[in-house]
């Protein structure tokens, strides 16, 4: 019986200590230095009138809006495997695509390594190709367990990229695919695959130099 009472006492003291600790922490936050931001915002704020702040606010939001991309551009969501053709703030077309798998390929006995990610950030359409030809890079052979050929002709593939391709730098393309069942999945080597019909529309709507935002 005495033991149970002792344990109860220990628990009460412990709970009291924890609550006390948290109260001290909150006390420091509320009354101490820790929630004071750096800089003297209040002093600077006091020197201007409300109207001045309002006009500055309108000016700044206007400047931000002016930076937005105008005309037709592309947004690609690599997590959801979606491509959006935008015209200003309006979504002109939504396409189910396939983006990079994130897989790693290491050359057996070699030093080379590839990470199959779709690059993220801001890009531009640098080329528009009809019936594109894929010049297969070394990794395409290594992945199949083959040795990369010395003969250039063995690298030429006229079928895999579909009917259209939009290049956005460093060998990356938005292109067609033979594997339409895999659209909507992260299965590519970094390029963005789309169905031929959708891609044809994207190809027609998006001009050379249009911005591409990938996240």
């Amino acid at each position: 019986m005495a033991k149970i009472k002792d344990w109860r006492l220990v628990l009460i003291v412990l709970a009291g200590l924890l609550v006390g600790l948290e109260l001290i922490g909150y006390g420091i936050e509320i009354f101490g230095w820790s929630r004071k931001p750096t800089g003297d915002a209040d002093n600077t704020a006091a020197t201007k009138t409300l109207k001045e702040f309002q006009s500055q606010n309108a000016l700044l939001t206007g400047r931000l809006k002016a930076l937005a991309t105008r005309g037709v551009f592309i947004i690609i969501d690599t997590a959801e495997n979606r491509l959006y053709v935008m015209n200003g703030e309006k979504v002109q077309k939504e396409v189910v695509v396939s983006c990079g798998s994130g897989d790693i390929l290491e050359e057996t006995g070699g030093t080379r390594k590839w990470i199959f990610d779709t690059p993220r950030g801001e890009f531009s359409v640098t080329s528009k190709l009809v019936n594109p030809t894929w010049i297969k890079p070394d990794w395409a052979f290594i992945e199949e367990g083959e040795k990369p050929p010395a003969n250039f002709n063995e690298r030429v593939d006229n079928d895999s990229l579909g009917s259209y391709a939009l290049g956005f730098g460093n060998g990356f393309f938005i292109h067609g695919t033979l594997y339409t069942r895999l659209l909507g999945w992260n299965v590519t080597h970094g390029c963005v695959r789309a169905g031929d019909k959708d891609l044809e529309e994207v190809f027609r709507q998006v001009p050379m130099g249009a911005k591409i935002y990938i996240y």
């Binding site: 790693i104 290491e106 050359e107 069942r181 299965v187």
Partner: peptide, 28 residues
């Protein structure tokens, strides 16, 4: 990140295959 084993069929390449039943070995 999954590692690709060279020479091994990592994922279905034909339309006919049922992808829902296959482990695609990808980062999603």
């Amino acid at each position: 990140r999954p590692n690709i084993t060279p020479g091994r069929e990592e994922r279905p390449k034909a339309d006919k295959e049922k992808i829902d039943e296959v482990d695609l070995g990808i980062l999603e």
